[in-house]
Design a protein around this nucleic acid. Structure first.
Lengths: 247, 247
DNA sequence: CGAAGACGTTGATTGAGATCAACAAACGGC
DNA sequence: GCCGTTTGTTGATCTCAATCAACGTCTTCG
């Protein structure tokens, strides 16, 4: 079985610098000189930008198989990518190498193009989330997205580790950290979600969560079924190192 | 002199259905079956989507040389492209033809990839505009974008025909049409812009407009110098038909 | 262990923009 | 030219989320 994105990994492999990341680690995007490509292999990464008035923004969330490149970022100060998972991996490829590979291999060029187009669709959908939904609906949208993308079934429901702090959520959804806290509390009392510790969220009923968000259908189409098992299958669940392992 | 986007037009030409558009004309995006590509040749086009609660949104503004494809649109109902200029032209290319051309011509594939990446950067920047700016700043951002993109120098300042109605502006900037009207009036009394008729806007001082918008620098980088002279050069300045010719 | 700092929660108040409503201006068709 | 429809403007009021402030909780490191 050969997934399309694997073409990208296979062709980039000989040119890639593999970077193992830990949470909060920052990846530099060369704004001058040669363009930088990053291919996300494992974990979740956040595209951050800083507005001139020092406000932070999270423009995008990157999942495994996603591609980040300098040209795709607006020319904002402090544009950077940070790791949001405790353990992540990205491959860095020089722009010239990526270009040469794509020119030599039409299937690769097509795979990159297709995947990147989907990422653009996600950006457009996020525009719709920001422009059309209120605070509660936006948070529901984000939680639904994460449930679909990185959620793992447990007896109590679908669980995932929240890769964004309250402030990060606020910066992504154009809300205030205080407001996010209030909304999450409200969702908890409504029984839509429950929490284990500070960062693990369990969604008992995905349908109920989807019902809170008018864009649930589009989000499902965009994010459902994207978690794919890799070679090592369950290796991502190694118990060491993660602070959750002591309880 | 050979601009990069010309590669796209040249290679698409044999496969393209040329469509001359008039304002408000709708271009269908096949949501099922084969993907559709549109290459904007002339005029401005708006990507519209309808939320489940019947609210309209304008996700994106397309300028000449921009590419629209089904896969890049989120799966929202009523996703469509409408012409915003009185006279426009797009080329429609079937997905299979576009794919075959790109596979046969690496330069074409690269040109599409580069241009589409820039469009994605614009989407990300629009996210930043929605998330980080207040109403006045958002409107200033849009007006600055249009001034840079489609503005033509006149003795009184840089003039452009507003391709979006008040409602369209509101749907694009996540504001209310009433609020947009108020903000535009405010800008007029502040002397930032002046208006001829209903649709023609003159920006007397681009610097002053830029000073109203914290993201002006990024917008300039993204939109300045993109108006390129085509074969017919100044033919677009035909004086007839525009209501401004009476004063 | 205990202090310092980061992060999260909750309450009281404020403000930007939405909503509702009435009116004015432009346009298109006949 | 005239009338009906659409589009834009302006005022009064309301609401959702921002802001300010205080406090609780988790984490890190000497």
């Amino acid at each position: 079985m050969h997934h399309v994105p694997d073409v990208i990994a296979e062709e980039f492999a000989p040119h890639a610098v593999r970077i193992a990341t830990r949470r909060y680690q920052k990846l530099v995007l060369s704004t001058e000189g040669e363009e930088t490509f990053y291919l996300v292999r494992k974990g979740i990464f956040l595209v951050r930008a800083t507005l001139p008035d020092a406000r932070q923004q999270i423009l995008n969330i990157l999942y495994p198989d996603d591609i980040a490149r300098t040209l795709a970022m607006p020319a904002l100060d402090g544009t950077a990518i940070t790791a949001a998972s405790d353990t992540g991996e990205v491959w860095r490829v020089r722009g010239s190498a990526a270009k040469a590979s794509a020119e030599a291999n039409a299937a690769l060029a097509h795979a990159i193009s297709t995947h990147f187009t989907e990422q653009a669709a996600r950006l457009a959908l996020h525009n719709a989330v920001l422009a059309g939904l209120n605070g509660d609906e936006r948070v529901a949208a984000l939680f639904l997205e994460l449930t679909l993308r990185v959620g793992r079934p447990t007896p109590a429901g679908i669980a995932f580790d929240m890769p964004l702090s309250r402030t990060d959520i606020a910066d992504h959804l154009a809300l205030n950290a205080d407001t996010v806290s209030r909304i999450v509390s409200r969702m908890r009392t409504k029984g839509l979600i429950s929490m284990v510790g500070r960062n693990r969220i369990i969604c008992r009923d995905v349908e109920a969560l989807a019902a809170e968000c008018p864009l649930a259908a589009a989000l499902s189409q965009m994010h459902a079924g994207k978690t794919r098992k890799r070679h090592g299958a369950e290796t991502e669940t190694e118990p060491a190192l993660t602070p959750a392992s002591r309880s």
